[in-house]
Nucleic acid binder design. Structure first.
Lengths: 209, 209
DNA sequence: TGATGTGAATTTTTTCACAGCA
DNA sequence: TGCTGTGAAAAAATTCACATCA
């Protein structure tokens, strides 16, 4: 069994979300097969089975998958059965949007601390998370067992914050700042780049069909 | 010359951003070659040349690229030399964050209208964009020549808004709602899924190294 | 029979190697 | 000589075809 490509992981997350909705609608008894799942998600059905096959056997031949069981299995594969502690760096509008998004809580992704350099915000509590000065990242990260950091600060501050996070021992970072961050090999960095997404659309609209 | 893969377009956007910073720092005279560019961006240098080669010849053998010229060319390829009119659907915190992000303006991506069903917001103006009722999408989209729509509404409202946008003739959509939208083939849809990104990190942290 | 799971085939993307030009 | 641009090779991802099993 080969190592799954990273994009398979993203698709597992998609399957998981679908299964949750599906169970809510149809109950946990109904079975679902890869063709139906593929149809709903507009994905090739071979791909779904291939993605799952990297991790084991979850279906029943001639029948399909039991959604509740498959959901649990994917949850486990993705590491969502245990919870993770997150910190949010930068509490502007984007930070507020992330804090407000309840979907994270459901997956046991808890924002437990906020770092912001604005003195007026430090000490306040938003959605159950207290705001600390960026200087205290190392201290707070250790005390609160922070696993994952979200960078939502302006571009000019992003690398400095990243360095602090890495120094504090955080090994997974989601970066929203539009800049290429330098991180060591053992730190996992994912970037969400809103401008790049829009530029893709711009290209689509202007390129000849 | 073959069709470029979609991911090349995303990388062009990255090159563009880097060139802008580079020109600011070094001035438009200094040349840059693919190896340096690759080094800064942590990308293979063959890939950079290959990405560019899909669109033509932009460098000088033995020398490299003139950043100002390359920037203009990429701008043109990506369709950013003409501007685009955007609308924002849903004005919560995420919407506010998008409105506040000045990077879009620099690329001539202008949010010219906002659609929100909250009656208290309708009629108000944020960052130069007026808030309209979702019912008036068709009308406003035509009047303001809207090219691209951003969906930042709750999951439950996303498909309905998408249908309205498509009906209004909009052919490019950036979707932030955590749901798979159904759109016709001729509409370009890109999704930004924050939960999926975090789940990738969760997988990384929990998978054996 | 019907749907999974998977090795093989195909397609796509990345990387390489070098011809070609300043 | 030095670096681009590109066909070819290699690697990776997707799709296919089918053996397998309930």
């Amino acid at each position: 069994m080969k190592r799954p490509p990273e994009i398979s992981i993203s698709r597992l997350a998609i399957y998981l979300r679908f299964l949750e909705d599906y169970i809510k609608e149809k109950g946990p008894q109904a079975t679902i097969n890869s063709r139906e799942l593929a149809h709903f998600l507009d994905i090739n059905h071979h791909q779904i089975r291939k993605d799952l096959s990297y991790f084991g056997k979850f279906g029943e031949r001639g029948v399909g998958y039991r959604p509740e069981e498959l959901k649990e299995k994917i949850n486990n594969i993705l590491g969502l059965d245990r919870g993770w502690n997150l910190c949010l760096c930068g509490m502007g509008n984007l930070g507020l949007a992330l804090l407000a998004y309840q979907g994270f809580r459901l997956m046991r992704l808890d924002i437990v601390a906020i770092f912001d350099s604005d003195k007026k915000k430090i000490g306040k509590v938003f959605q159950g998370a207290k705001v600390y000065s960026p200087e205290s990242i190392a201290l707070v990260a250790k005390r609160l067992n922070i696993d994952i950091a979200i960078i939502a600060v302006p571009q000019s501050a992003a690398q400095k914050i990243a360095d602090k996070l890495i120094h504090a021992g955080i090994r997974a970072i989601l970066n929203f700042a539009p800049v290429k961050l330098n991180v060591p090999r053992n730190v996992k960095l994912r970037n969400v780049d809103l401008a790049t997404e829009l530029i893709n659309l711009s290209y689509f609209l202007s390129s000849p069909k």
